[in-house]
Simulated assay, not measured.
Amino acid sequence: MHSLQSNSFLGTDYLQSGTFKQQELFRDLEEWKILKSLHGFKPTLAGTIPLDIDTETSDVDILVKFNVPAHLQKICYAKFRNLPNYTFSEKTMDFRLTLVCRFETKKFQYEIFGQSLEPTEQYGWIHMMVENRFLKLADPSFREEIRNLKRQGIKTEPAFCKVLDLKGDPYKTMIQWNQKTEDQFRELLIQKGFQINPN
């Protein structure tokens, strides 16, 4: 397991020196005080923009932890209800209550995803960490293949499993790969014809 202390994805500083889209996201988060508004819920960015595999239609995923579901609903309503296409819903995922708040600014579509788990224990984060390990190890053609599949409307986890020829439920498969070693990641990439980045 990778240490959380040294994980740059836990903050937003990396966005400031990142791609154009990442820098734009940093400014948007600041302008609308989105993470500040969610301060008590440990807001953590996940998804495709942090990984630089986003497409034109990618939204921004923010993972949060709630203790009392109604508190999150109240804050989201107070802070974001006046933004375009605001919705708030609840569903059950893996037997766990999950709250989803969506809204838009002029530049981005946002999805706040709340569970009673720490953001770094939620599947959205674990998927991102596994995807990041593949992206860091593989040559740039791997990232392009993922992005091309996403442009065709394929979701992120299924896109990774398709490129890597991994069978079964893509969401569960990504969770299983969180337990694998760096050598196993390398081995699979080489087997699928990708060059490995020198460290």
Rank of each mutant, 00 (worst) to 15 (best):
N82A: 10
W177K: 03
L51D: 15
G47A: 14
L38V: 02
T48K: 10
R151M: 08
Q22T: 13
P198R: 00
L45W: 15
F80S: 09
Q22P: 13
L29I: 13
G40V: 00
R96F: 03
K91M: 13
G40L: 06
E182K: 05
D169Y: 06
P84F: 11
S58T: 11
G47D: 14
E111R: 11
P170I: 08
L45R: 15
F41T: 12
S58H: 03
D165H: 10
I196L: 11
A138Q: 06
K42I: 02
L149C: 02
R102H: 13
T57I: 15
Q23F: 04
C161L: 03
R102V: 09
L135D: 09
L15G: 09
E187M: 09
F113R: 10
N197G: 05
D61N: 14
K155V: 00
V163Q: 01
K21M: 13
N197A: 00
Q152Y: 01
F88M: 13
M1D: 01
T92D: 03
I126Q: 03
I75F: 11
M93Q: 07
D52K: 09
N132E: 12
G193H: 06
L149N: 10
D183C: 05
K172W: 00
V130H: 04
V64C: 15
Q22S: 13
M93I: 14
F103N: 11
N199M: 00
Y110K: 02
T173M: 10
S37P: 11
Q179V: 01
A159H: 07
L15Q: 11
I175K: 08
N82Q: 12
G11I: 09
M1G: 02
F108V: 01
E90L: 04
K65M: 11
I75L: 13
Q195I: 00
Y86E: 09
R151A: 06
S8E: 12
S6A: 06
F41I: 09
L135C: 05
E56A: 15
G153W: 07
E144H: 07
L117I: 02
